[in-house]
Computed example of a mutant assay.
Amino acid sequence: MRLALPGWLLGAALLLGAAQTTRAAEQFLEFDINGLTRRVLVVVPDSPASGPRPLVVVFHGRGDDDRAFANAVRLHKDWPDAIVAYPRGEKRESSPSRGWQVRVGDQGDRDLVLTDRLLEEMATRYGTRPADTHVAGFSNGGHFVLLLLAERPEAFATFTVIGSVMPGFASDSPPKPVLYLFGRGEDRRYKESWAGTVEALARHNRGKGPLEPFMGCCQLQSPAAGGAPFVFGLYGAGHIWPAQGNEWLKDFARHEWSAP
């Protein structure tokens, strides 16, 4: 599944991206991963920081790339004091579309290795740290975020999954704060899978008790001892990054979660 934006909205996003004044703060980082050159678009604020900056790593959907996704989503514009990294997925032998691994061992774990290298580089260059590092993904990128939740839970403070389903998700990794968003206009074939994914993530985060309204979009399930908050909701669109997605992601990531 890939990111799909209405033509007028994508055109406007591209124009805004071309006209932005922070292009000098943009850079492409390259990493050699198993003989393959991997690219990441990184946007760094121009203003001085008083302490460690938040880092947000955002993974695009299948068939997209770093530049087009950054221009359409523009998280770096809505969270101007954060460093935002947009890695680019690579094509698979079985598919001409760029995308991400969804299981351990796939493609030699090249996307897990890329993530590790990127986080190391950000820490070296900008002093970022896991307590202020967040990850989000759309569609196939969301599937990869779920893999990171299972395989790299200590690398990120929060995990945001948008427009993805994985009802079979299960892991022995420690629970972490998760935001899970899905469009009401998604294909009906995925509705049951969405509900199953909610149940799977609630189990993983050891949710208990009644649901509470949260951020005006979602429900919050507080955790039992040793668990982590789980927030989920439906937005009024189809398979597309929601119009308020950046606001919700930012508010969720910046929320001061108390220990259960």
Rank of each mutant, 00 (worst) to 15 (best):
H134F: 01
S94K: 11
S50Y: 00
A72M: 00
V145P: 04
H76I: 11
A136G: 06
L119E: 14
T133P: 06
D132N: 14
R125P: 07
T124E: 15
A131N: 11
D66Q: 06
L149S: 13
T115A: 13
V73S: 13
D109A: 04
G137L: 08
V113C: 12
L114W: 00
Y86Q: 09
V102M: 06
L146R: 14
V56S: 05
F138K: 06
L75Q: 11
D111T: 15
K91T: 10
G63N: 08
L148F: 05
E120S: 15
G51D: 13
H143N: 14
Q107P: 00
W100Y: 06
L112E: 06
H60D: 03
R110A: 02
F144E: 06
R88D: 05
R110P: 00
R125T: 13
F59I: 01
M122D: 03
L149E: 11
K77W: 00
M122G: 09
R67L: 09
N140S: 15
F156M: 11
S95H: 05
P87M: 00
I83N: 02
A131P: 03
H143C: 08
T128R: 10
G61N: 08
A150K: 11
V145C: 09
V73H: 00
A136S: 10
A123W: 01
A70R: 00
F59A: 08
F59K: 02
R117Y: 06
L149T: 06
V104G: 00
Y86G: 02
E93S: 10
D106G: 01
S95Q: 08
R103S: 14
T124L: 15
D65P: 01
K91V: 04
S50L: 01
E120D: 12
R152F: 06
T115Q: 06
G99N: 02
V57L: 05
K77N: 09
A68S: 07
A68P: 09
A70P: 09
R53V: 10
L118T: 15
A150M: 03
L112K: 07
E121G: 09
G63T: 14
V43D: 14
V102F: 05
L149G: 00
Q107Y: 10
G51T: 07
L55V: 07
D65W: 15
R88H: 02
P48Q: 03
R74Y: 01
R88L: 05
R62D: 01
G51R: 09
H134N: 14
D111P: 05
F69A: 12
N140L: 04
A68D: 04
D111Q: 12
A136E: 08
L147V: 02
P153N: 12
R88V: 01
R152I: 12
H76Q: 06
D111L: 12
V57Y: 04
T124Q: 15
A123P: 01
V135M: 04
N140K: 13
L75W: 01
A123Q: 14
D64G: 10
A72D: 14
P54G: 13
T115E: 07
F144P: 00
M122T: 15
R117I: 10
D116Q: 10
T133M: 10
D81Q: 15
A155R: 12
